[in-house]
Nucleic acid binder design. Structure first.
Lengths: 170, 170
DNA sequence: TATTGTTATACTCTATAACTATA
DNA sequence: TATAGTTATAGAGTATAACAATA
């Protein structure tokens, strides 16, 4: 009786011994494994070949997309903490890939933008990244890709405002 | 310059300036964000409430599923390195949650199994984890859940035997 | 020689909070 | 008081390789 789990809210009977959890079918685990495997090759591209970290890549990619935005906007867009953005920006700035400029309307804020060199590097990495993502998704039909996208989006929005640890079991 | 990049097969034109990469639509990024968000709450359950790490949780879950298996089998099943399994097993053993026993047929191997205490803890955590996963997946219909599962599986198998960094661009 | 598993090392990443400066 | 951003600190996690035992 591996029992289990109407997700909704129904109480479920389980044997004390076999609560019916199968790791390979456990959604959070699966998402992590797929994400890790999917990132491995890509991370090698930008770490080994361009010497940048994941956080730096995300900042680079965000600035490649939006020419000049504030650090906190990058944090939101790239799903990074402000600390990580600050560190990544410092590292990129030290290599002259990025420039900081204070917002004159609100002196607390800083606009970040790629330098010409930064934009050049972005021009090198982005096609490789796109190619990689393309090859990754190539095992899915375009309908499947769209579907996956929708499902991930739904999941993300839902997960973001899910109560913490087991509301029922506190 | 940025020219390049036939993805799966179709050549794509891009401006040198805007290689057309949108972070929020970039599959590896999306997978990582969803996985991270989906894990947050869960990790809190077993770290704060039970004092175990993710690796330890995976070992625990694997042993909850397969009563007694070798360390390397756990590594394969739980997608962990042998070092991580070894460390996690030591930590669990130190808390008397797990027992190691040498395989008498091949003295290099060690069988790991949960102790009664370990099984008890598993019995506490597994239902919480299942509940969490259930609430997570509750935003999807059961058809959608099955579909997501299939898509993730396909993606995983494909990603695992994908050539490293851009085969074309080496 | 290859494999299982453990340990050591150094390194990176991370979270937290303290801090500066503005608002 | 609250916010944007930086810096400091310490702790956790990581990869790598070296190692012992066995095959």
């Amino acid at each position: 009786m591996s029992s289990v789990a109407s997700g909704g809210g129904a109480a479920v009977r389980r044997s004390a011994d076999r609560p019916g959890l199968t790791l390979s079918c456990f959604l959070p685990y699966r998402l992590n494994v797929v994400a890790a495997v999917a990132s491995e090759g890509l991370a090698r591209i930008y770490s080994e070949r361009f010497g940048i970290s994941i956080a730096e890549w995300r900042v680079l990619a965000t600035l490649g997309e939006f020419r000049s935005i504030t650090a906190s906007e990058i944090a939101r867009h790239a799903h990074l903490s402000k600390v990580k953005v600050s560190r990544a920006a410092s590292a990129l700035e030290a290599r002259s890939l990025l420039r900081r400029r204070t917002n004159e309307r609100d002196l607390r804020e800083t606009f970040l933008a790629l330098t010409v060199e930064g934009r050049t590097m972005y021009g090198h990495i982005a096609p490789l990244a796109l190619d990689y993502a393309g090859r990754l998704a190539a095992c899915l039909s375009s309908e499947e890709q769209a579907l996956l996208d929708q499902l991930l989006e739904k999941l993300l929005l839902h997960a973001q405002d899910m109560p913490g640890p087991s509301a029922s079991g506190r």
